[in-house]
């Protein structure tokens, strides 16, 4: 019984992490890059209008960071619940 609860708790922790990362993922691309791009274009990053920058540069940098953050945090969750590969 103890083990089973742990498996469910593990899956819950995983889903929570995935959910949090997806929120950031959505905000930088669909949010800043598309939905709010026009408003952000009033702000400039060097010669870039900010909305344009998110759509063509910024979101990509954030995506790369997100995957590594996910991989690292997942590694921690795996060890915490003792399900990591040996």
């Amino acid at each position: 019984m103890e083990m089973d609860r742990s498996a469910q708790a593990y899956w819950k922790a995983v889903l929570k992490l995935v959910g949090q990362i997806l929120i950031v993922w959505f905000l930088v691309s669909y949010g800043a890059g598309i939905l709010f791009a026009d408003a952000l274009n009033n702000i400039h990053l060097g010669g870039y209008p900010l909305g344009f920058w998110f759509a063509q540069q910024g979101s990509i940098y954030v995506f790369v960071a997100l995957i590594f953050i996910y991989a690292k945090l997942m590694g921690k969750i795996d060890e915490k619940f003792d399900v990591h590969e040996q």
Binding site: V18, I21, L22, W25, S29, G33, A55, Q56, S59, I60, F63, L66, I67, Y70, A71
Partner: peptide, 13 residues
């Protein structure tokens, strides 16, 4: 640009 890179986040997770 976003479409062909953002998918990797989904793929990884």
């Amino acid at each position: 640009l976003m479409g062909w890179t953002g998918g990797y986040v989904l793929l990884a997770m």
